[in-house]
Computed example of a mutant assay.
Amino acid sequence: MTRSLPAAHTYLAHDPALLPLLSAGPLPDLAPAPDPFASLIRSVNGQQLSVKAAAAIAGRVAAASGDFDPAWLSAAAPDTLRALGLSWAKVRTVQAIAAAQQGGRIDFAHLDTLADEDVIAALTVLPGIGRWTAEMFLIFGLARPDVFSFGDLALRKALERFYPEADQAATVLAWSPHRSYAARLLWRTFHVTPSV
């Protein structure tokens, strides 16, 4: 039976703290987003919001913009985006992302060919894009298998809960090359997944 399990499941099952979490069901799958640009916009929208609130705002922005059309987002009046529920800071970030895509400063089709740290470097030059947002994009936009975000509050709480005496950096490093799967597993224990 073990042979039919995904490699990440089998690997992470060697961690005694993760083993009971894995018994709750199969690991959530990682699949690249069909539209990496829209995935990044969703990551920005999800910053510091509940999953429910982020989903509602993303739905309004998607409907108004023709499913996150970069040209529409770039040209929209800031007040229009603000009225859809984006904060002023997120309006600035969304329009900067759209302008970067429109102007060719970021080639979203090409990002998948870059190493993780190079993707982070390419994105964090934009206003409002920090490491957490870039890491969420790597996991949910590009389906990178070995990313863990210490900037994520739920993940930090999960580490404190399941590894109270352990060196957290060493614990997470031991999950490589399947850290994204471990993150998805830990989010599941808190019944949350970032809204991306």
Rank of each mutant, 00 (worst) to 15 (best):
I97C: 04
T133F: 01
S149L: 05
E135L: 03
F190K: 08
A134G: 11
H178I: 02
L18W: 01
R144I: 04
D69R: 04
P20C: 01
R184C: 09
R3V: 07
R156Q: 15
A99D: 13
R188W: 12
L185E: 04
S4Y: 07
S180D: 11
D116T: 01
S4E: 13
P78M: 02
A115T: 06
G46V: 06
N45H: 10
I139M: 15
L138N: 06
P26M: 10
I106Q: 05
A109V: 01
D69H: 06
A55N: 12
L142V: 00
F68E: 02
F140L: 04
A99E: 13
W88S: 09
V125G: 12
F190G: 03
L155S: 10
A54K: 04
S176C: 03
A58W: 03
E165R: 13
V192Q: 15
W132V: 07
L5T: 04
D15Q: 08
H110A: 14
Y11S: 14
P28F: 08
P127I: 00
A183M: 07
A115I: 04
I120R: 13
A109L: 08
S23W: 05
A109P: 00
A158E: 13
T189L: 00
H14P: 01
T93R: 06
Q168G: 05
F140H: 09
F68A: 01
A100W: 08
F162S: 00
W72A: 09
G104M: 07
K90N: 11
R131P: 06
A100N: 10
L5H: 12
T189E: 14
L30W: 10
R184F: 04
P6W: 05
P32R: 11
A158M: 11
A174E: 01
A33Q: 05
D167G: 01
L19G: 00
A13L: 13
L123C: 08
G128N: 08
D107P: 07
R42G: 05
A143N: 07
R42E: 15
D112T: 15
L159Q: 02
L30C: 11
T113H: 13
A143L: 06
A31R: 13
A158S: 15
G103Y: 03
F108P: 05
K90R: 14
G46H: 05
A56K: 14
T80Y: 00
H110D: 11
L159T: 02
R156M: 15
M1N: 03
F140P: 03
S149Y: 04
A31K: 11
